[in-house]
Write a protein that binds this DNA or RNA. Structure first.
Lengths: 203, 203
DNA sequence: GTCTATATTGCGATAGAC
DNA sequence: GTCTATCGCAATATAGAC
């Protein structure tokens, strides 16, 4: 059930993106074939190149689109009137949820393996994925500093540090395909990190 | 200049390991060929199989050997009579040094890309690399708890959390081949993490 | 489907230790 | 001379490329 944009062009574009997601995540970047994407999306190769320019830009567009979808729960965790502590907990769990999903791991593995040869892809991934999450949190922290709820000079660094704490080695373990952590483990991870963060920085 | 073990067998074994390091890091696991390793090491293929059994075990042995070498600075950071704070700082910087080295990143990329098909390799990497570092730190933290310098129930979790804080997103950025962090950035990262950790857990 | 590349094994030859 | 480790090469098997 493809999400339909409004105009026919948007529909077309979305269909191609969704076919691309399947193919790139299944084959990796170099082994994915544009022909295969066209086969699944229907339509002509010409249209793909008209919309996206080339294979690399197509993959970049897919990364952006997937990242935006996957990170949207983070917005939901922030956009409400909960306490700092509750917000950080919800945000942390939402972040780990995203990070440990199989499709997010598949992109990560692809970009790690092939990012050396295609630095623009690596940049696009980092900017729209992990770094976008950091930016959202640091914006929220900025608000809290303005509020007077937090005392903190470098909110961007603090956001990176917070995500680092809750990630601990969970992401690496997942990326390597090792045993996934239990929900309990995740909850403990987030709870101790939040407690530490709040004690350290709240006024 | 190969490091020579004492017995001829050890020399042989080391020579093969070192040739293997080159080849596996250059080509990745699947694309590395045993023939190429034999060519560089000299000697016969039969000997390689006699010592290591098969290609996968050879790579596992290489991972173990490299990890042991690369993690040895962590031992040096711990084995002295510095204060908790100083030890954590030295340990953190040594850890980041190892993690961000090009050869360590190359292994990581290889294991991430191919670990899905070879789960034993992924386990070996994790156990001897990142997890071995955690174990060293948690042993040190255990001592400090026994000392009465720290109050802390789960030292293993705390060690993972500490490394997570100082890693923040530096390792991911490096693995993706993005701009490396400056020494200043690393120092600030470690310093704020140590301060936070010590404030949180020291008695 | 063919064909190449390459992991893995088998075996007689050789070289050095004792 | 014997013994053992290793060598060199040849053979098998199989997976992936084309």
């Amino acid at each position: 059930m493809p999400k339909t944009g409004r105009t026919p062009e948007e529909v077309r574009r979305n269909t191609i993106l969704q076919a691309g997601v399947q193919v790139f995540l299944e084959y990796g970047y170099v082994n994915a074939s544009v022909d295969e994407i066209v086969r699944r999306a229907g339509g002509s190769k010409r249209t793909v190149y008209k919309y996206f320019g080339n294979k690399e830009e197509l993959f970049a567009a897919i990364i952006e689109s997937l990242a935006a979808q996957m990170l949207s729960p983070l917005g939901a965790a922030i956009d409400d009137n909960s306490s700092l502590q509750t917000t950080l907990e919800k945000l942390g769990k939402a972040y780990l949820d995203v990070l440990l999903r199989e499709d997010s791991l598949a992109i990560f593995r692809t970009v790690v393996s092939e990012g050396q040869c295609f630095p623009e892809l690596a940049k696009t991934f980092f900017r729209n994925g992990p770094n976008a999450a950091v930016v959202r949190l640091s914006n929220y922290l900025d608000q809290q500093v303005d509020n007077g709820s937090l005392q903190l000079s470098d909110t961007h660094a603090a956001a990176r540090q917070y995500f680092g704490m809750i990630r601990s080695d969970l992401h690496m373990r997942a990326a390597l395909g090792l045993e996934p952590p239990t929900d309990d483990e995740i909850n403990r991870e987030v709870d101790t990190a939040v407690a530490m963060f709040v004690r350290e920085y709240s006024v």
